[in-house]
Structures are given as structure tokens and as C-alpha cells.
């Protein structure tokens, strides 16, 4: 009898503990849903605004839904109209998108290559001044970017290179310190025996880099390449300072200027924002693994 009650209370206790645990899980889950809504609501609002008619977007009062039905007028304006009068009748925003690709893709690819080559040298090769070089590289990461703003502009101005893509493209082609560190770390982890045996086979360091290291590092290279591309695509200050002609605007520059040209047409501005966001969201969803790999490892191991 006595024995029985003890068993009873323990089961009850266990059930209580279990219930508390379930309750806690639900609370945790509920909090995360709430926070996910906070993250997503701005995207939702900008999207429905983009589908509103110009009149509805400019009518007093906020609505969670396009009351006058879904209109594609704003997207039509963004995708096909020369809203600034500066892009020779073609769409200002699409011109900006193409300009962005022209500005961003070459430095991303070339910069990835130069960073990887440098990272390989620091990881697997012996050469004089290695430590000095490495320290210089570390140093570059510590200089606040703000200090370079005015003098680089002046240099390009003297060289007649403002309002060209040169200042936006060429520096990136020399590689980025952060990418060098990340890739060096990655190459460092590849067994040196592989390098040694390739050397015995008569392979040069270039051959080792290109035919052994690069194929083995697809994920790491993709991670750095994607981060570089996203950074370039989203860059604002560079284009703001250097590019003045409307037909050379990058996408972000075109977007930021829409409030000036379409001050009261928020449907169009919203459509422009959505169009600008879509490529990044696609890349993010497709290549999420690389993002997280690239960032988590860059952040934690440098």
C-alpha cells in the first residue's frame, strides 16, 4: 500500500515535469514564431505596397491588403520605365541592375582568385618576409575605412577616373584581407603530405594550387565568392561618391534616388525595393549553406 503511493507520486511528479517541459517547449516555439513575424513583417508590407495602385499607396490609412486588387502598374514602371529621364528611355532600375552586375562580377571572381593564391602561399609555401607580409595584411583589417574616403576620391579625381567604374572595380581585384585569412585557414587544414607528394611528382606550386588545392576547396571558395558578391551588390557608399551619371548608377544608387524622383509614389518605390531584394533572397536561399559556412568560420577562427 505504502509502496504503491510512492510509485503513484513519482509518476505524478514525472508527468508534472513532463508537462512543464512541454509547456516550456511551446513557450520557446511561440517566442520564435513571434520573432520570425517581426523579421518578416517589413518584407510583407513592402511587397503588398508594391502591388497597390499608386492612388491606394497614397491614400491615408494603412492596409494589410491591396484593397483595390493586385496591380502590376508599379512593377511595370520599375521594370520598363525611364523614371529619371536619364537612361535613354530604358528602365532606370534595370539599367542599374545590369550596371551592378558589370561592376561586381569581375572583381568578385578576380579578387577571389588573387585572395586564394595569396592564401595558399601563406598556408603552404616558404618565402622571405612571410611574417612581415602577414602582419601587413592583419593591419589592413584594422584601418577604419572612413579614413580612405576623401583621399581616394581626390586621387581618382586627379586621374579623371570619377564617374567611371574604375574606383569600384579595380581595388577589389587585388583581393581582400578577410578572404585571404579565411582561405589560408582552409588550405592550412589540407594535409601537407598531399603537397609534398605532388612536389615529388614534379608539380610546381602553381600546379599544386590549381589542380589540387582549388578542386579540394570548392565549398570554401564558393562561400567567399558569394559573400564578396553580396557585399558588392549591396554596396552603397562607393557608388554614391564616385558615380554621377544616371545611366551609370548601380541598382542601390537607383533605389536610393527613387524617393527624390517618386517622392509620393510609394507603390513604385516599394516595387523597386522588392526587385532589388529578390536576387539576394534567391542567392541566400539557394546557397544558404555557403553563407553560414563562410560567416561562421570567418567569424570564429580568424
Amino acid at each position: 500500500m505504502n509502496n504503491n503511493t510512492t510509485i503513484g507520486t513519482t509518476t505524478e511528479f514525472r508527468m508534472g515535469a513532463k508537462r512543464a517541459q512541454i509547456l516550456r517547449s511551446i513557450l520557446v516555439f511561440g517566442f520564435l514564431v513571434f520573432f520570425a513575424l517581426i523579421v518578416l513583417i517589413p518584407f510583407y508590407i513592402i511587397s503588398i505596397t508594391a502591388f497597390m495602385t499608386e492612388a491606394e499607396a497614397a491614400s491615408t490609412g494603412f492596409s494589410w491588403w491591396p484593397r483595390e486588387g493586385f496591380s502590376l502598374a508599379a512593377f511595370d514602371t520599375v521594370l520598363f520605365r525611364d523614371i529619371t529621364g536619364g537612361t535613354a528611355g530604358g528602365s532606370t532600375v534595370m539599367r542599374g541592375f545590369i550596371n551592378t552586375l558589370i561592376v561586381v562580377i569581375p572583381p568578385t571572381i578576380i579578387g577571389l582568385f588573387t585572395s586564394a593564391l595569396s592564401g595558399y602561399a601563406f598556408a603552404k609555401m616558404r618565402f622571405p618576409l612571410k611574417k612581415v607580409f602577414f602582419t601587413i595584411l592583419l593591419f589592413t583589417m584594422m584601418i577604419p575605412g572612413v579614413i580612405m574616403l576623401v583621399p581616394t576620391f581626390i586621387i581618382y579625381d586627379i586621374l579623371w577616373l570619377t564617374d567611371t567604374y574604375f574606383p569600384l572595380m579595380v581595388p577589389g581585384m587585388f583581393g581582400a584581407a578577410a578572404a585571404v585569412f579565411f582561405l589560408r585557414q582552409y588550405f592550412y587544414g589540407i594535409p601537407t603530405e598531399l603537397v609534398e607528394s605532388a612536389k615529388i611528382d614534379g608539380k610546381s606550386h602553381w600546379g599544386i594550387f590549381w589542380t589540387i588545392m582549388v578542386p579540394l576547396s570548392g565549398g570554401a571558395l564558393a562561400a567567399q565568392g558569394i559573400l564578396g558578391f553580396v557585399g558588392g551588390y549591396n554596396d552603397f557608399m562607393g557608388p554614391l561618391i564616385y558615380i554621377h551619371s544616371v545611366n551609370r548608377w548601380t541598382l542601390q544608387l537607383a533605389l536610393s534616388n527613387m524617393t527624390g524622383f517618386h517622392n509620393h509614389n510609394w507603390a513604385v518605390i516599394a516595387a523597386g525595393t522588392v526587385i532589388a531584394l529578390i536576387p539576394m533572397l534567391i542567392i541566400y536561399i539557394v546557397a544558404q549553406r555557403f553563407f553560414i559556412e563562410g560567416i561562421a568560420t570567418t567569424g570564429l577562427k580568424v
Binding site: 595569396s118 616558404r126 618565402f127 583621399p151 581626390i154
Partner: peptide, 27 residues
């Protein structure tokens, strides 16, 4: 290896000297 190593490693350093250090002194 030393020559090749410097050559491989150099580009980002060179980029920094041209686009980083020089402007810094100018500033």
C-alpha cells in the same frame, strides 16, 4: 619557392599599399 611564394602572396599586399596605405598618408 621563395620567389614564387612572394609572387603569389603579393597581390593583396600590393592592393593594400596602393589603395590603403597611400590614401592614408594623403589623408
Amino acid at each position: 619557392e621563395g620567389v614564387a611564394g612572394i609572387f603569389f602572396a603579393m597581390t593583396p599586399i600590393l592592393g593594400f599599399l596602393i589603395f590603403g596605405l597611400a590614401p592614408m598618408f594623403l589623408a
